[in-house]
Design a protein around this nucleic acid. Structure first.
Length: 680
RNA sequence: GCUCCCGUAGCUCAGUUGGAUAGAGCAUUAGCCUUCUAAGCUAAGGGUCGCAGGUUCGAAUCCUGCCGGGGGCGCCA
């Protein structure tokens, strides 16, 4: 609708410029004017043209004069009502409001899909070490990943969601050490803890492990020689087929269950859980190693500090004439990444390259799969398995993506860059280049939040703006605790406003509000912004929050509830109106206000596209808030008291406008993973 | 030392590929519920966009150099 009109205007402008000024432009910059009175689309290109003409011919032209020569040609574009020259030479285009509005009123209710999928995009997020309860930092990862995936799907992308499970890593080993050496517990005793009835949140197995993990860290601190126990435990877990590995397998599986439950509360789910144990036992690395060697991506060092290692070179060569003087082995290969150690073992980066080659279908090996569960929507969630006998061959096709997207905190930028480099050395498909590390900043704690969690802070720490969370220290805001608090608070609000509802209904609404509050809180920041977590901020339901957005949609819908007619019914009536009758409603001062609202609502598709291109869900979140804000202002404007409107035709137009806004806002919220409660 | 991110109102943050008078929430102050539900709205105050140069018709945005805060740079994962 509006965006296709924009494109048409741009093409017309390019043709006009070529025709009148003999200048070839690839694209023209457009912008939305700051005020409705200035038009719907503005082109500052006359300034640039004046410069180009002067450079080419020496002739000095006034930008306003140039804009004038282009204005007439634009008026012929269907959908353009008029064109004005403003300020020093802006070309301001005014749309035919009635035309655009009528198109909006009859358009499909889905987000417009632009590009055809060019293959499958594999989005990996969550990937929490399965050894303790998830905290707010993990939730930021999951919400970012889940929302980004929703937005990408809305643009027509084929997306597969993975959650990587590092079930054979150090962190799992630590909890195994805790159970075996601190608590001297057998597998049966561990099972008894994990499967005991849960009376309160603290009884959860992931909470138990949260504390145990922190105690293990302390235990190592007391006697560093105990780290040998960790090394031995890790070795046994990696090797498999022994009692230690069995305990590790059991613990990590139960914790994964806990994480899935936590994420389900936030309406987050996965297609596949890929486990490190399979990457190990199915010898993914051995295959990747051969491919890396064959491609020349890694080389064997016969001298220097990395002698005996297989490394990936940092750069192909250095710039001519630079640093010749100091070219000893020390500085030359400083940044080279070791993939295979001199003792023959592979590094984490190497394993990760193997995994990513699998994601793109370039490894020549596959996992075995089994159905793990059905998620809260009844969709299948699969998990990898190394045990062929327990595998199910009727699984959906996994992997074989054309690109991958990894939601991992910014601290992993260096290894992630190496993984992509290694993969691209083997898979030259240009679509792979789209693969990206979706780096996001951490969630830290304000000193106030840390104190509320019962931490004792040193004087120096109290002066700091933020305190890092630490799983090892057991310092952090557990996801389920926070969601519980949000739900409790929301339930109190719901009870005071909707006492007539059943308890079950009240609880459902409270849950939806809690999810909205948390998801929006995490999405209102850009990915690169550190969130200093503050309880007061996170627990807010007013102002720029998720519940505010939900409330806005509720208001929009209630207009139709009170009206007692369906939106379709009103739209059918709208179709009977003449273009003039519609146009009348968009004239004058009040018409400008109505038009601004409708025009802003029409921009959802553009915002979604922008958000998808930048992998930045914040854009959709901010847009939703702005749209809600604009609607609420409109809602309380005395000139638009819709249900009391006596002019039937005006009332119809206003109702359709309300329905358009409602749809767009509801769509935006769905992309953010926010549901709209039946009542608020 | 090399490198990435951040620095915008008292606080927390937005600000598309450079564009018109730099925005929002919170907090403060003054108002609005016989009204389509106040989880809302209106108004006011609050800014050397870290500092200094540069590029440009035009810079919060691009370039250079500083200052301040955080992260990364391992034969750990």
């Amino acid at each position: 609708m509006a965006s296709s009109l924009t494109n048409e205007i741009k093409q017309t402008l390019i043709a006009l410029v070529r025709d009148k000024f003999s200048v070839d432009l690839d694209d023209v910059v457009s912008e939305i004017p700051p005020k409705t009175e200035l038009g719907d689309l503005a082109f500052p290109l006359a300034f640039d043209l004046a410069k180009r003409i002067k450079a080419a011919t020496g002739e000095k032209k006034n930008p306003r004069e140039i804009a004038n020569k282009l204005a007439d040609g634009l008026k012929t574009v269907p959908g353009v009502a008029r064109v004005e020259i403003a300020g020093p030479g802006y070309l301001n285009v005014f749309f035919s409001r009635a035309d655009i509005f009528t198109q909006l009123a009859s358009a499909s209710q889905n987000v417009a899909t632009g590009t055809q999928p060019s293959g499958k995009l594999i989005v990996e997020h969550t990937s929490i070490n399965p050894n303790k309860a998830a905290h707010i930092g993990h939730v930021r990862n999951s919400v970012l990943g889940d929302t980004t995936a929703r937005i990408l799907k809305a643009t027509g992308e084929n997306v597969e969601i993975h959650n990587y499970i590092d079930n054979t890593g150090v962190q799992v080993a630590d909890v195994v050490v805790g159970f075996m050496h601190l608590e001297n517990k057998s597998l049966a005793e561990i099972k008894a803890i994990a499967e005991r009835p849960v009376a309160k949140r603290e009884d959860n197995f992931d909470y138990y492990c949260w504390d145990l993990y922190s105690r293990v860290g302390q235990w190592y601190e007391e006697d560093k020689t105990r780290l040998q126990i960790r090394a031995q435990t890790l070795h046994e877990i990696e090797e498999g087929n022994n009692a230690t590995a069995e305990i590790g397998e059991y613990i990590s599986s139960r914790i994964v269950d806990c994480h899935l439950e936590t994420m389900a509360r936030l309406d987050i789910s996965y297609d596949l859980l890929a486990r490190e144990s399979e990457i190990l036992h199915l010898h993914f690395w051995a295959h990747a190693f051969e491919k890396l060697k064959a491609s020349g991506a890694i080389v064997f060092e016969t001298e220097g500090r990395n002698k005996g290692c297989w490394v990936m070179r940092a750069e192909e060569g250095r710039t001519e004439g630079e640093t010749e003087g100091q070219s000893d082995a020390e500085s030359e290969h400083d940044a080279d990444k070791i993939i295979v150690r001199s003792n023959g073992t592979v590094t984490y980066t190497g394993k990760d390259i193997a995994y990513h080659l699998w994601k793109l279908g370039k490894l020549g090996l596959d996992f075995h799969y089994r159905l793990l569960r059905h998620d809260h929507h009844g969709r299948e969630v699969w998990i990898t398995t190394g045990d062929e006998s327990s595998a199910n061959n009727q699984h959906p096709p996994f992997g074989n993506g054309t690109a991958f997207l990894n939601v991992i905190d910014v601290g992993q930028s260096y290894p992630q860059a190496n993984v992509k480099k290694g993969v691209m050395a083997i898979d030259h498909d240009e679509r792979v280049a789209r693969s990206a590390h979706l780096a996001y900043e951490k969630v830290t704690l304000t000193p106030a939040a840390a104190i509320e969690l019962g931490t004792e802070l040193s004087e120096a720490d109290q002066q700091r703006q933020q305190i890092g969370m630490s799983g090892r220290k057991g310092l952090g805001v557990k996801a389920d605790d926070l969601i519980d608090r949000l739900e409790t608070k929301a339930l109190a609000e719901v009870q005071s406003r909707n006492a007539d509802l059943s308890e079950a209904q009240q609880q459902k609404i409270a849950r939806q509000i809690a999810v909205a509050a948390l998801r929006y809180f995490l999405l209102k920041f850009t990915r690169t912004s550190i969130i200093a977590f503050d309880f007061e901020e996170a627990l807010k339901f007013r102002g720029e929050t998720g519940p505010y957005l939900q409330y806005s949609v509720r208001r929009l819908s209630n207009i139709f509830t009170e009206l007692g007619r369906s939106a379709d019914d009103v739209r059918a009536e709208f179709a009977q109106l003449s273009a003039e009758e519609v146009a009348t409603q968009f004239s004058g001062e009040a018409g400008d206000v109505l038009w601004s609202l409708v025009y802003f609502a029409s921009r959802l598709d553009d915002v979604v596209q922008l958000s998808a291109n930048a992998f930045e869900p914040t854009h959709v979140a901010k847009y939703a808030f702005q749209l809600a804000d604009q609607f609420n202002t409109f809602y309380q404007d005395k000139r638009f008291h819709i249900l009391k409107e006596s002019d039937a035709k005006r009332k119809t137009v206003l109702l359709v406008a309300v329905d358009v806004v409602r749809q767009k806002l509801a769509q935006a919220l769905a992309l953010l993973g926010i549901e709209v409660p039946e009542k608020m």
